[in-house]
């Protein structure tokens, strides 16, 4: 519980003259559900993008399970156990929901050009196992009824669950969720929270960007607040609710939203 599984040192990202992430020293503890909050434009999503290798940092370092992974791209980080979802879901629209999920396992035999030709039996066996697991994961996120649907046809909330399912297929140890509850109806949000907590009990670490303060206060510990690219608060949910700086920087801004 006490080892940081994901951490940064002085992480900085500029867009031209604008500093979106400003010298962030982050420590995500193994087995935690960390809530990342902050007003719009605080740099939360940019921080996610730098952490997951989709944007290169301007300065600073990223460590995953103690290893320096600064500058590595998202495909390599996923292989090392760092998964993420997107604020606006990115389903593979003209693929079935099942196929979306079956994509994720790493190093599938059939991903090689000659795999299907040279080792058809082994590939089919592996494929059958992946399909079975994909159906299990879809059942876990309550999407099993939609397995044969084109991903473009499912609802926004279901897309959030689909993204979670895809990431779970790769069995990462840290999962970054970008606004998992935004635009999701209360029933599905409930499902999502249950699944996150169940996975967390199984040992997975979560970092969650969320604007829904009830969600954060009930389910995240610790809570980290970002404003203008900097960490302005770090502590438990109770401390967050009582913190005047946080109320000013975040909850205040949220009222104007």
């Amino acid at each position: 519980m006490t080892e940081p599984i994901l951490s940064t040192r002085n992480l900085t990202r500029d867009f031209g003259p604008f500093r979106a992430v400003d010298g962030v020293d982050l420590e995500i503890l193994d087995g935690s559900i960390t809530g990342l909050i902050g007003p719009n434009g605080a740099g939360k999503s940019t921080l996610f993008n730098v952490l997951t290798g989709m944007l290169a940092p301007t300065a600073g370092q990223v460590f995953l399970q103690g290893r320096d992974v600064t500058g590595q791209q998202s495909d390599r980080l996923f292989a090392q156990g760092l998964g993420r979802t997107f604020q606006i879901p990115r389903p593979f629209g003209r693929m079935s929901v099942l196929e979306n999920v079956m994509l994720a396992p790493m190093n599938q035999l059939g991903e090689r050009l000659w795999g299907p030709i040279l080792q058809p039996a082994r590939m089919r066996a592996e494929e059958a196992a992946i399909r079975e697991r994909a159906l299990e994961v879809l059942e876990f996120v309550t999407l099993d009824g939609l397995a044969d649907q084109a991903a473009a046809e499912i609802s926004g909330g279901q897309r959030k669950l689909l993204e979670l399912a895809r990431v779970l297929m790769g069995d990462p140890s840290v999962i970054l969720l970008d606004e998992p509850a935004a635009g999701v109806n209360p029933t599905l949000t409930r499902v999502l929270i249950d699944k996150i907590e169940e996975l967390n009990r199984g040992g997975k670490t979560f970092v969650i960007i969320e604007h829904d303060m009830d969600f954060v206060m009930q389910h995240c510990d610790p809570v980290i607040a970002l404003a203008q690219g900097k960490i302005v608060f770090q502590g438990t949910a109770e401390e967050a609710q009582a913190n005047p700086v946080l109320l000013d920087a975040y909850l205040g801004a949220q009222v104007d939203d």
Binding site: S74, D75, P91, F92
Partner: peptide, 23 residues
Amino acid sequence: RSPFGRMLRAIREDEVAAKSLGK
């Protein structure tokens, strides 16, 4: 129809997402 084809379609549909899933 193999996992290779699945990767092709995923990259056609959304390259960023495919990359975030290790491809």
